[in-house]
Design a protein around this nucleic acid. Sequence first.
DNA 1: GCAATCACG
DNA 2: ACGTACGTGATTGCT
Length: 881
Amino acid sequence: MNKKFMIIDGSSLIFRAFYAIRNLTTKDGIFTNGVYGFLNMYYRVVDEYKPDNICVVFDKSAPTFRHEDYEAYKGHRDKAPSELSSQFGILKDILNSLNVKFEEQDGYEADDIAGTLAKKAQEENYDTILVTGDKDYLQLVDENIKVLLTRRGITDVDEYNEESVEEKYELKPIQLIDVKGLMGDPSDNIPGVPGVGEKTALKLIREYDSIENVYANIDNISGKALKKKLEENETLAYLSKKLGTIFLEVPMDIDIEKYKIEEPNYEELKEKYEKLEFNSFIKKLPTEEIEYEEDFEYVFIKDSSKILDKLKKSKKDFAFHLFYNGSNYIHSKPEILSFKIIGEEKVYIYILKDEKELLDFKEIFENNSITKLSYDLKSDIYYLLRNGIDLKVPYEDLTVAEYLIDPSKNSYDIDKTAKLYLNRDLFSNEEIFGKGKKKKNLADIEEEQLGNYIGMYMSVTEDLRKTLTEIIEERQMHDLYFNVELPLIKVLASMEVEGFEVDAGYLTDLGDKFNEEILELEEKIYEDAGMEFNINSPKQLGEVLFDKLQLPVIKKTKTGYSTDAEVLDKLKGSHKIIERILRYRTVKKLTTTYIDGLIKLIGEDGRIHSTFNQTIAVTGRISSIDPNLQNIPVKTEEGRLIRKAFVAGEGKKLVDADYSQIELRVLAHLANDEVMLQFFKEGLDIHRKTASEVFNVDFDKVTSLDRSNAKAVNFGIVYGIGDYSLSQDLNITRKEAREYIENYLNTYKGIKKYMEEIVEVGKEQGYVETIMHRRRYIPELNSKNFNIRGFGERVALNTPIQGSAADIIKIAMIEVYNKLKEKNLKSKLILQVHDELIIEATEDEVEEVTNLLKEIMENAVKLKVDLKVDINIGDSWYESK
DNA sequence: GCAATCACG
DNA sequence: ACGTACGTGATTGCT
């Protein structure tokens, strides 16, 4: 018996189902009819035919080679409605969980890929079953190749083999191409011979076998009119035949075994079916929980030399982790060191008496021939680095791996990850440590529970490696993971260890000044209000302004009156209390967040050690907490004073480099907008140039208002602007805003096209990508809620821009870090602020560092537009920015 | 634990 | 989940 290979035309079935099943949506308005119909069919045919291998094929929206022959090919066909196109992404996502491979290729249609696969399978003695709603597939029927054709919607199928085709049409399957060549196909805009319909075409081919032979015998054709039509349209007939022929040589690596049926990921399927409200399919999923046999044994060791010996002798990769108390490792210390050598059962647990003991393990961590694995590796690297140990590559971190697979998660916890990817039930952090005030320390946990917790942690770390790395490889994120995100961990840990020197005395003095002013302002505000109240409470403030003082209400929030700066700005002049409140807010913010907040976090070394989070921002940016050093004031002179507290150490300087207009440059690159690319090439002020084009004035005559308006539009575009928001931002009417945007998009036509295309791509794929293939899924694109979908569309536009810029600076950081190390320089990278890098450089190295920083940043990646970096040097961040 | 506000790119 | 711009984090008040 031959093996059975089933090829399913996903595009055709989803299309059929979409029109056959009406109005099937989830309660959130996600259209699911196409996907539902497909799955119904899928389960039915798989049950009935029990194939050994399965592949689903899709059309791809790019123009196919057929358009080169005939421009009008499928010309009048309307674009699929968004309710349908949005379902392709959902279906592919489900296929992934079903572990069913799918194929699609630019320039080819689903039937071409199906045909190519079927012929190849035929050579390898498979019995192939093609499942589709498209009658054209019948031309592929052959020995060992059958077609299942849906009939009336998708409820029934007809099975065609060689005999049944011949019976029905009295022709060989391959001759159906000739029939189509003569009769054409209005749905694909294939012309055929005008005036020749199915009846005539069938008759002619039955009689003469092929189009070629029809023309060879043209004089024998009975019927003058028919003969004339044929003669006049000979080229058209041949062209139509060519267009109607399924292409059997799609260039692709074919390995039919790749499509072998695999066990689906039932956990994922259940989740996805629940989201889509496919209850009937949930019932099909196996219900019994798979019992997991624990494959580790934990050992508490008293003497570190025991495990040390083992690790030194072992040539195998190992998982490890340093466990600490509390939620922030920087303000804590490592308590427990655990190892698990890959493939071995034992999980070694060693309770550190002092973190200095880590030095005993230096040789192991600095061995560059074995891979070290961890879940939450940055904390480990931080502790090692803090103790003079440089964890050498190769190393891998499963937290980061999981983040790359889906950056939208709120947290990356090992118990949830283990459940999702390995279907293993772990104790949660909360179960072990408790929560709130009762939260326990590691030392308070009973030994057996601790052993099981750490044992599972290590064993799961080991097992996740294969599962997660496979997904990363499949998605072509190898480079992003291994050459960007993983090396970056060490760079971030190093910045955390280095910290930023802060002048506490200066901050205190500044704080005293601000506090004095706050006291004065409070008094005056109470006077203005005629009562004392808590100015910090928006509720109380609202009552004072809008009830007591009867000022006009500008805007409301969910809970009451809005009192934000925008509202207060509009109320300026109507009461002297307003300006005082604005001033109070400004000064209060500076003292609480930036003076008191920062002073609290200055370490014993006089430096602030922020924590950089690599797995928070969905776009790929890094974020900074405890404290956030990425939002230190700069926009107002008063706020900027805070930056005088951030200083270079003794005998050092700050070298501050920032990318000029990186997001607009990335946009110009992604959109391939000739006009904007050219403007950047000319090195002109891009906002001024934009103003000159959009408002149609000479470059030299652009007013500063024009320029700042153009600047707002440039920024707005990057965020997926709307006329409403722009009008608010620029204080102009909505109509004017609409005109600005229109003019803008007429100037930058490439950007206009890109904006439309990227949304379509997002809908089709279910995600968008950065230049490094960083992925963000956007389920919001499927919402029928106008606002949510609008949000999805803006995100689809903005994420590739913001995310690619993040990719670029990350690459630069790694190269800068490595170069400083390679050249044995003492200067260190200490901070990144999205488009800005700060190096604390020793005075003798300033020049060299300046040069290498600029060189590396400007050449981190090669885009269609040059990257430009501005550098400033100073003793404090105030001077260097 | 959430909402409002405001700091940054 | 968002009455209309993307991405973050800290502080304060209040339930």
